[in-house]
């Protein structure tokens, strides 16, 4: 039996995806994997009768059903209460020990408020940490949902892994079109077929460079723009300049303060003038604690940032980044001269 560190923060994974995209079916299958032994499940149901939890009988003692509807508008307090309650029950030994919580959101939930609740709550942030976000996407209806539903778009943009479901019901061309669409929205996510997706999509928190950013960015891209629609674009900044970590923190905090609802995702590897790079990643206004990586992916020491943005001009973001970082160098020089 695997031993877990009872003092380590409990990882919380989000399983999201639009209505009917196969979240519960996927979860049912994954929960039979030994890697997810010791995982508790929270389910947020949209509607009056919560049926899904009856399907998850294997972990029934740890299932807490939240019946108040959509996470993004009404359940922030409840999800905090549910997590605190689970933590309390575990501490008192009233439920079996668990080292991971998987939250299955409603099909209409934006993942951001849930992640934000975990990070911002003064007690939760001491006991829990956010893990991978997994989004299911229906191969038959995904195209239309991404084109017309903001919720589906936000779910895909926030995901670390995107699982295509019902691919056996769609033509190969339709699946390939959908994959291209997904990559245009979120080029940093891993895209897998539900039939081949294993527990690794939830468990793997590896910050290996190739997991953090896609190969084309790691192998020498100069930065660019990939458009899903006129309003949603993924956009990258690649620079060989050493980044001033302090200035980067100020700039990104300002940007997210004013435009966080339009920055659906940001991910990057930064050369901050130290021996190892720093990885940053965030969803809308939430930025996860930065990670000092174990090393560079290759000889390339450039800083690389990827944004998924909605209704923001990439050229303006790039200019702002450059002005702030050029200014930082000048200020440093000025400070040295005065001192």
């Amino acid at each position: 039996m695997t031993e877990f560190d009872s003092n380590a923060p409990t990882t919380i994974n989000l399983l999201t995806g639009f209505l009917g995209s196969g979240k519960t079916t996927l979860l049912q299958r994954l929960l039979h994997d030994p890697e997810l032994a010791g995982a508790a499940v929270l389910i947020n149901e949209f509607g009056e009768v919560g049926l899904d939890h009856h399907l998850l009988d294997r972990i029934d003692s740890n299932v807490v059903l939240m019946k108040s509807g959509c996470l993004c508008c009404t359940v922030r307090g409840e999800i905090a209460d549910a997590l605190l309650n689970l933590h309390s029950l575990r501490t008192r030994g009233e439920v079996p020990w668990f080292h991971r919580i998987i939250i299955e959101t409603t099909g209409l939930a934006d993942p951001y408020p849930v992640l934000s609740t975990i990070r911002a709550h003064p007690v939760l942030r001491s006991h829990f940490s956010a893990g991978n976000v997994v989004a299911t996407l229906d191969a038959v209806n995904g195209h239309a949902q991404l084109a017309t539903r903001q919720e589906a778009l936000h779910q895909v943009a926030a995901a670390d892994s995107i699982i295509l479901t019902k691919t056996d019901l769609a033509t190969a061309d339709a699946v390939n079109d959908l994959k291209a669409m997904v990559r245009a929205i979120n080029p940093t996510a891993t895209v897998l077929d539900a039939a081949t997706a294993g527990a690794g999509i939830i468990v793997d928190l590896s910050l290996a460079p190739e997991r953090l950013l896609p190969a084309e960015f790691l192998s020498g891209s100069q930065g660019g723009i990939s458009a899903h629609t006129q309003s949603v674009q993924s956009f990258s900044i690649v620079t060989d300049r050493e980044i001033d970590w302090t200035v980067f923190g100020i700039w990104l905090t300002m940007l997210l303060h004013k435009h966080g609802d339009k920055v659906l995702r940001v991910k990057g590897i930064l050369n901050i003038g130290e021996a190892k790079p720093v990885a940053v990643h965030g969803v809308q206004r939430l930025v996860h604690p930065p990670v000092h990586m174990s090393g560079w992916p290759d000889g390339d020491r450039r800083s690389k940032l990827v944004f998924i943005m909605q209704d923001l001009d990439p050229a303006l973001v790039r200019r702002s980044f450059e002005v702030f970082h050029a200014g930082s160098r000048a200020s440093e020089m000025q400070a040295v001269a005065i001192g």
Binding site: L252, V278, P289, P290, V291
Partner: peptide, 11 residues
């Protein structure tokens, strides 16, 4: 995040 409390795994 830009001035995090020092702890394992966090820059």
């Amino acid at each position: 995040w830009s001035s995090a409390v020092a702890r394992d795994g966090v820059y």
